[in-house]
Design a protein around this nucleic acid. Structure first.
Length: 356
DNA sequence: AAGCGCGTTAGTC
DNA sequence: CTAACGGACTAACGCGCTT
């Protein structure tokens, strides 16, 4: 296999930018799109903030009351997920025109393997063209990273934002990574960063000084090995189209509760929706999981794997009820609850070509 | 000991 | 006065069981 050229396209402050499209006056004022629940006295959390708001320190994931505190004049809008998904779909179609394989990672992000279209010498032309196509078609800006693999492309796209691009050629990878703080490395989250800090490791170059053995001992075989590779800019994973592996719904209760009946009622609703999604794509599932989020925001999950695949609503609800009852008999009050169907496959009778 | 199925948590956007 | 905080998804770990 020759040298790969991978792009990572990241839409700029996606939800808020889409809102600006319909109300351009928002562009000059601090604005954030919020996920809100129907919880009593709930202001939800920030899902996306424009760059005016970011100047005040508003960030996604932040509770809205904090955003309001540090930026009292902020405009808070409720998220319209359906709408963003439709816009996203059109953007992805544009991207698909520029490569054979498109890997959509989330509503606003995708990887493209463009090795057959360009080398590193000409990749800037392609990047500019993609950005132009998206802007001409949707009036939206994005940031793009180019690199020899997904890891570097991904980290490149966040280098220059908004409306920027960064190209990291293979021989530049080492320098690109060296001085980055560990938490900037993809795959290093809060917990991993804290452990590394304890070990006196705060930059990627210091992380490179750790042996593979040390990392796998501390973080486990797969994760430790990945950290070892990632700190060296090594990532052989392929750009591949994704198929969804689970369908889930999660919702806040109006009020934190101890009452298993209330939680069952909520899960019934959510199970209806998950069942719809499953049915609409002719899928069945074998595992049902219930998620419970407590008042202190700790997440707990309980699951059951059935003897056979099913898409039967009654079976799904019954399983969910069991999970709720088991959990609630020995645990704290629940603030949010959800259901997930996994272990999914195409409903039989549709016989795929591979089923011989 | 290697591999698998299962239940659970960490991480990301 | 204080406390207030979404939702969706994938990766992968550890365990117990089988081979």
């Amino acid at each position: 296999m020759g040298e790969r050229v991978i792009l990572h396209v990241d839409m700029d402050y996606f939800f808020a930018q889409v809102e600006e499209l319909e109300n351009p006056s928002l562009k000059d004022t601090p604005t954030a799109v919020c996920m809100v629940s129907d919880r009593l006295s709930s202001m939800g959390t920030v899902a996306s903030a424009n760059y005016v708001a970011r100047k005040y320190g508003v960030k996604s994931g932040m509770p809205c009351f904090n955003a309001k505190k540090i930026c009292p004049q902020i405009t808070l809008l409720p998220a319209r997920k359906r709408h963003y998904e439709q816009v996203s779909g059109r953007v992805m179609e544009i991207l698909a025109c520029h490569c054979k394989i498109l890997e959509q990672v989330s509503v606003d992000e995708a990887y493209l393997n463009v090795s057959e279209k360009t080398g590193f010498d000409n990749v800037e032309k392609l990047i500019v063209q993609i950005k132009k196509d998206i802007f001409d078609g949707e009036r939206l800006t994005c940031s793009i990273g180019a690199g020899p693999n997904k890891l570097i492309a991904k980290m490149g796209s966040s280098e220059k934002k908004p409306d920027g691009h960064t190209i990291v050629k293979p021989h530049e990878v080492e320098e690109f990574l060296a001085s980055k703080p560990v938490e900037k490395l993809f795959g290093v989250g809060e917990k991993t960063a804290a452990k590394l800090k304890e070990m006196g490791v705060d930059t990627v170059s210091k992380m490179r000084a750790l042996s593979r053995e040390r990392l796998t001992t501390v973080f486990g075989e797969a994760r430790g090995g990945r950290l070892y590779d990632f700190s060296r800019g090594i990532d052989d994973s392929a750009v591949r189209e994704r198929q969804k592996e689970q369908y889930g719904r999660l919702k806040s209760l109006r009020k934190t509760t101890n009452d298993a009946g209330e939680v069952r009622l909520l899960l019934d609703e959510l199970t209806d929706e998950v069942h719809q999604k499953l049915k609409s794509e002719s899928m069945s599932c074998r595992t049902i999981s219930a998620t419970f989020i407590l008042d202190d925001l700790t997440t707990m999950t309980r699951s059951k794997t059935l003897p056979t695949h099913t898409s039967d609503l009654a079976v799904m609800k019954e399983t969910a009820h069991k999970l709720v009852d088991e959990f609630m008999s020995s645990n704290n009050a629940v603030r949010r609850a959800g259901i997930t169907a996994s272990n999914i496959r195409k409903e039989t009778g549709q016989k795929s070509l591979f089923e011989f």
